[in-house]
């Protein structure tokens, strides 16, 4: 059994907006932490009261359209060696304290950051594949070693290098439990909000990249053997999200190129279903863009 002394060295930071119900579920699952900070982004419900009732420190901040943009500011306020970042619609299991203490005790000297698998629940279904699992998230790290970019839902960078990141291998390890969306309507609503609030570079518009990203999103998310029709629906939404982003980007350009051909997407049905065959898996790989080099992006971490 790892020492609980390690847990006093962890600060949990939660960014919340109108998340009283979520916090009431989350905060009891992190009560073992040395400190809990709830960054309250202009909530109008009982978010602050719930946080205080669970012994958290509440830091009121102005609302920002992209949470990741303000995360870095509050990482520096923690005084403990380790930080665990949670969202208000997430929570941990009953053995999380023991598992976090175990990670720090076993790997704390050789690693600065841990990518934790996340179980995503959409409606009543826990996603088993479709790019939604294991969905490792860099959330537990040594203070000063991880930095987010000004965007939404992009993996943060591990400043000390990817060899200092440990990707936890599911199952049988610490997980983040995430009540994502109650239904597809909520999912679509949030995707649109993220797309509208994201930052688009006016000097690097490449329409083909959005079309390719749409296909990549579909190929990566289309996994009906794991998640049935829900996988199909989510794959279409994620592909559509890229198409919409391309149009938002285009709309912000001073000098707009022609959109001719932009919506002539190749037939999405031609993307083979995963796992059906090795040939299918190989064909699917052809739809994927090569990943760009550099940085310490989450997927490049070494496995435990």
């Amino acid at each position: 059994m790892p020492s609980t002394d390690d847990l006093h060295r962890v600060t949990v930071i939660v960014h919340a907006r109108n998340a009283a119900a979520g916090l009431a579920k989350l905060l009891p699952t992190v009560r073992w932490a040395g400190a809990i900070v709830v960054v309250d982004m202009e909530s109008t419900d009982d978010t602050a009261d719930v946080a205080l009732a669970h012994g958290a420190k509440v830091v009121p901040v102005e609302l920002h359209p992209r949470v990741d943009a303000v995360r870095n500011r509050f990482l520096e306020t923690a005084t403990t060696e380790w930080i665990l970042v949670m969202d208000a619609d997430e929570y941990l299991a009953d053995d999380a304290a023991e598992l976090v203490a175990g990670l720090i005790a076993e790997h704390g000297t050789s690693r600065d950051a841990f990518a934790i698998p996340r179980l995503n629940r959409i409606g009543s279904h826990v996603m088993r594949g479709s790019g939604w699992y294991p969905d490792q998230q860099i959330r537990l790290f040594r203070r000063g070693t991880v930095r987010w970019s000004d965007s939404t839902h992009r993996p943060p960078e591990v400043l000390s290098g990817r060899e200092r990141l440990l990707l936890l291998k599911a199952p049988g390890c610490l997980h983040i439990h995430h009540d994502n969306y109650t239904d597809l309507r909520a999912f679509i609503e949030r995707q649109v909000r993220y797309a509208l609030n994201d930052v688009y570079d006016p000097h690097s518009y490449e329409p083909d990249r959005y079309a390719a990203a749409a296909l990549e999103a579909f190929a990566g998310r289309h996994d009906p053997e794991a998640d049935g029709d829900l996988s199909r629906a989510l794959a279409v939404i994620m592909a559509w999200d890229q198409v919409i982003r391309g149009l938002i980007h285009w709309d912000q350009l001073a000098d707009k190129p022609s959109l001719e051909g932009y919506l002539t997407l190749p037939a999405i049905g031609a993307v083979p279903t995963p796992r059906r065959s090795r040939v299918g898996a190989w064909l699917r790989s052809l739809w994927r863009r090569p990943r760009r080099g550099g940085g310490s992006r989450m997927r490049k971490g070494t496995r435990s």
């Binding site: 299991a93 009953d94 053995d95 999380a96 023991e98 598992l99 199952p171 049988g172 390890c173 610490l174 997980h175 439990h177």
Partner: peptide, 16 residues
């Protein structure tokens, strides 16, 4: 409901 992410022995889980 009690959720364990890692498999625990019968005794540990039952005591919990």
């Amino acid at each position: 409901l009690v959720r364990f992410d890692r498999h625990h022995g019968f005794g540990t889980a039952c005591n919990h």
